[in-house]
Simulated assay, not measured.
Amino acid sequence: MSFFGKNIRKIRSVKTLSQQAFAELFDLKRGTLGAYEEGRSEPKIETLIKIANYFSIPIGDLLTRELTVNELLKFKGELTEQFEAINKERFTAIPCITEKNSADYINYFDKNSFVAEMVHVEVPIETKTPLRAYIITNLEMSSQDQGLFPKDWVIGEFVPQDNYTKLSNGTLVLVLAVNQLILRRLYIVNDQFILRADHKSIEEITVAVSDVKEMWCITAVFQRRVSEVSSGIEEKLLMLEQEFAKLRGRL
């Protein structure tokens, strides 16, 4: 049994065509189309060619595998509206360090082919400086209910080695050193970097400048949480005042 029935049903869904409307496009009866979609019948070769040509889909793909919605949207013909490529807006694509690829990044960070194959995030940032995105996996940069939490992510600009010592103390940086990625606040002491977490119970890390392989200065933070508009204290005080007013009225 071919995938023809599943594929034409998916085409109808993408194109928002009823069975009747689709059948009329190719001089078919609605019942015949229904039989195709349910796998009770296969189309004649003439019908197959008409449908494949109309939607610019290779006959082999239409018959031998289930097409995805994304694939169908890319086919030309009458399947989708056509837009001029010049009008398509593009944001900056930034290689993203995730929990899954971080170990490989530590080993292959300097391989352009590896970086090119990393997952990328697109954000409306314009800069000529190389960027990295990094997804938070721990609570080291949190303090009580503030700061960065797992699944938050940050974007950093590349810091050339000559500019390491120009960074201000307390700058949030992502450092690749001693076979680990460290997101901390940077403090410079002689030829050493002190990397401190915002979480009070996390010990600081000392790294020799010569051990730093890469450094990224964090310039943007994206948090999954929505900050509370208010703490609720004002509402509680108002309620107390109203209760006191009621008590005074009874006295």
Rank of each mutant, 00 (worst) to 15 (best):
E66A: 06
E66G: 01
E66P: 02
E66Y: 01
L67V: 10
L67W: 09
T68V: 04
T68I: 07
T68F: 01
T68A: 01
T68S: 14
V69D: 07
V69E: 15
N70Y: 08
N70T: 10
N70S: 13
E71V: 06
E71D: 09
E71S: 08
E71K: 12
L72D: 00
L72G: 00
L72V: 06
L73D: 02
L73P: 02
L73S: 05
L73C: 12
K74I: 04
F75I: 08
F75V: 12
F75G: 00
K76N: 10
K76S: 07
G77Y: 03
G77P: 01
G77M: 03
E78N: 12
E78H: 11
L79H: 00
L79G: 00
L79K: 06
L79N: 00
T80R: 10
T80W: 02
T80Y: 02
T80S: 09
T80K: 09
E81M: 04
E81N: 07
E81W: 04
Q82C: 07
Q82I: 14
F83R: 10
F83W: 05
F83A: 08
F83H: 09
E84F: 13
E84P: 05
E84L: 15
A85E: 10
A85N: 08
A85H: 05
I86V: 14
N87M: 07
N87G: 06
N87Y: 12
N87E: 12
K88T: 04
K88N: 03
K88I: 10
E89H: 10
R90W: 03
R90I: 08
F91H: 13
F91Q: 11
F91D: 13
T92I: 08
T92K: 15
T92G: 00
A93H: 11
I94P: 00
P95N: 12
P95V: 15
P95M: 15
P95D: 12
P95E: 15
C96G: 02
I97P: 03
I97D: 08
I97F: 01
I97M: 06
I97A: 03
T98H: 00
T98M: 02
T98G: 00
T98L: 00
E99R: 15
E99P: 03
E99D: 11
E99A: 15
E99M: 11
K100H: 13
N101Y: 05
N101S: 09
S102G: 00
A103R: 12
A103M: 08
D104L: 15
D104Q: 15
Y105H: 05
Y105R: 09
Y105I: 07
Y105C: 05
Y105E: 05
I106T: 05
I106M: 05
I106N: 01
I106L: 06
I106D: 00
I106H: 01
N107Q: 14
N107Y: 12
Y108N: 13
F109P: 01
F109E: 04
F109D: 03
D110V: 03
D110M: 05
D110W: 03
D110R: 06
D110G: 02
D110N: 14
K111P: 02
K111R: 14
K111A: 04
K111N: 12
K111C: 06
K111E: 14
K111V: 04
K111F: 06
N112S: 12
N112W: 07
N112T: 12
S113D: 14
F114E: 06
F114C: 01
F114V: 10
V115E: 03
V115G: 00
V115M: 07
A116W: 07
A116P: 02
A116N: 11
A116Q: 15
E117V: 04
E117Q: 15
